[in-house]
Structure formats: structure tokens, C-alpha cells
Deep mutational scan, measured.
Amino acid sequence: KEQQNAFYEILHLPNLTEEQRNGFIQSLKDDPSVSKEILAEAKKLNDAQA
């Protein structure tokens, strides 16, 4: 469930490039146990690119 939530949120971050988004999603698939950390990174990058 946590992985699904992170997946959904990353898909809807407006400021990520397609490449960045795909990278985060691939990381989620590779290691779902760190989905919280991956989501935090994605949000940080999204904010930095706002």
C-alpha cells in the first residue's frame, strides 16, 4: 500500500521531467521497502524545480 501511494504521488508531481519520474518509479519497483525515502526525494526535487 505504501508503495502504491508513493507511486501515485510521484506520478502527479508536476515539476518532474519524464526522465526523473521514470527513475523514481523504477527505484520504487526495484526496492519497495524504501518507498518513503524515494517519495521524499521526489518531492524535494519537485519543489526545487518549481
Rank of each mutant, 00 (worst) to 15 (best):
K1P: 14
K1N: 15
K1S: 15
K1D: 14
K1Y: 03
K1L: 13
K1Q: 14
E2N: 07
E2W: 01
E2T: 07
E2S: 06
E2H: 07
E2F: 01
E2A: 08
Q3N: 15
Q3D: 15
Q3V: 09
Q3G: 08
Q3C: 03
Q3F: 12
Q4C: 08
Q4Y: 06
Q4T: 15
Q4H: 15
Q4A: 12
Q4V: 14
Q4I: 14
Q4G: 15
N5C: 12
N5L: 06
N5Y: 09
N5M: 10
A6E: 15
A6N: 07
A6T: 10
F7Y: 08
Y8Q: 11
Y8A: 13
Y8P: 04
Y8S: 08
Y8C: 03
Y8I: 13
E9F: 07
E9L: 04
E9K: 03
E9P: 04
E9A: 04
E9Q: 07
E9V: 05
I10E: 03
I10P: 01
I10S: 01
L11M: 04
L11H: 13
L11C: 02
L11S: 14
L11Y: 09
L11R: 04
L11K: 06
H12S: 11
H12G: 15
H12P: 01
H12I: 14
H12T: 12
H12F: 12
H12N: 09
H12R: 07
H12V: 09
H12M: 12
H12K: 13
H12E: 11
L13C: 02
L13M: 15
L13A: 02
L13P: 00
L13D: 01
L13Y: 09
P14N: 13
P14E: 05
P14A: 15
P14C: 05
P14T: 13
P14R: 11
N15S: 06
N15P: 00
N15V: 02
N15I: 01
N15Y: 14
N15R: 04
N15C: 07
L16M: 02
L16H: 00
L16D: 00
L16C: 00
L16I: 10
T17M: 03
T17L: 05
T17V: 02
T17D: 06
T17S: 05
T17I: 02
T17G: 03
T17F: 04
T17C: 03
E18N: 11
E18A: 05
E18F: 11
E18L: 10
E18T: 07
E18C: 08
E18G: 05
E18P: 11
E19S: 08
E19F: 09
E19R: 08
E19Q: 14
Q20C: 02
Q20D: 03
Q20H: 02
Q20G: 01
Q20T: 02
Q20N: 02
R21M: 08
R21C: 04
R21Q: 07
R21Y: 03
R21D: 00
N22T: 12
N22S: 13
N22M: 10
N22K: 14
N22G: 07
N22L: 12
N22V: 10
N22P: 00
G23H: 07
F24N: 00
F24P: 00
F24K: 01
F24G: 00
F24M: 05
F24E: 00
F24W: 01
I25G: 02
I25P: 00
I25C: 03
I25M: 14
I25L: 08
I25R: 02
I25K: 02
I25A: 04
I25Q: 04
I25V: 12
Q26H: 13
Q26F: 03
Q26W: 02
Q26G: 06
Q26K: 05
Q26D: 07
Q26V: 04
S27R: 06
S27T: 05
S27L: 14
S27D: 10
S27W: 14
S27A: 11
L28K: 00
L28Y: 03
L28H: 01
L28Q: 01
K29S: 05
K29T: 15
K29Q: 13
K29G: 04
K29H: 09
K29M: 15
K29P: 02
K29C: 06
K29V: 08
K29N: 11
K29E: 06
K29F: 10
K29Y: 15
K29I: 12
K29R: 08
D30T: 10
D30W: 05
D30A: 11
D30Q: 15
D30E: 12
D31V: 07
D31P: 02
D31T: 09
D31N: 12
D31E: 09
D31S: 08
P32Y: 11
P32L: 12
P32K: 08
P32E: 14
S33F: 12
S33N: 11
S33A: 10
S33V: 05
S33D: 12
V34H: 13
V34Q: 13
V34L: 10
V34W: 14
S35H: 15
S35A: 12
S35L: 13
S35G: 05
K36A: 08
K36D: 10
K36Q: 08
K36P: 11
K36C: 08
K36L: 15
K36T: 07
E37R: 07
E37F: 12
E37D: 07
E37G: 09
E37S: 09
E37W: 07
E37N: 12
E37Q: 12
I38G: 01
I38E: 01
I38D: 00
I38L: 13
I38P: 00
I38Y: 02
I38N: 01
I38M: 04
L39N: 02
L39F: 04
L39S: 04
L39D: 01
L39I: 12
A40Y: 14
A40H: 10
A40T: 15
A40E: 15
A40C: 04
A40D: 07
A40N: 12
E41P: 00
E41Y: 09
E41W: 07
E41L: 13
E41F: 07
E41M: 09
E41N: 13
E41A: 13
E41D: 13
E41Q: 12
A42H: 00
A42M: 01
A42N: 00
A42Q: 00
A42S: 03
A42I: 01
A42G: 02
A42F: 00
A42E: 00
K43W: 03
K43N: 13
K43A: 05
K43G: 05
K43M: 07
K43L: 06
K43D: 02
K43R: 03
K43S: 07
K44M: 10
K44A: 07
K44S: 12
K44W: 11
K44P: 00
K44V: 11
K44I: 11
K44H: 10
L45G: 01
L45E: 04
L45D: 02
L45F: 06
N46I: 02
N46P: 00
N46V: 02
N46W: 00
D47N: 07
D47R: 07
D47W: 13
D47Q: 15
D47V: 11
D47K: 08
A48F: 11
A48Y: 05
A48D: 10
A48M: 10
A48P: 02
A48G: 05
A48E: 08
Q49G: 05
Q49R: 07
Q49I: 05
Q49F: 08
Q49C: 03
Q49A: 09
A50Y: 06
A50W: 05
A50V: 10
A50C: 05
A50N: 11
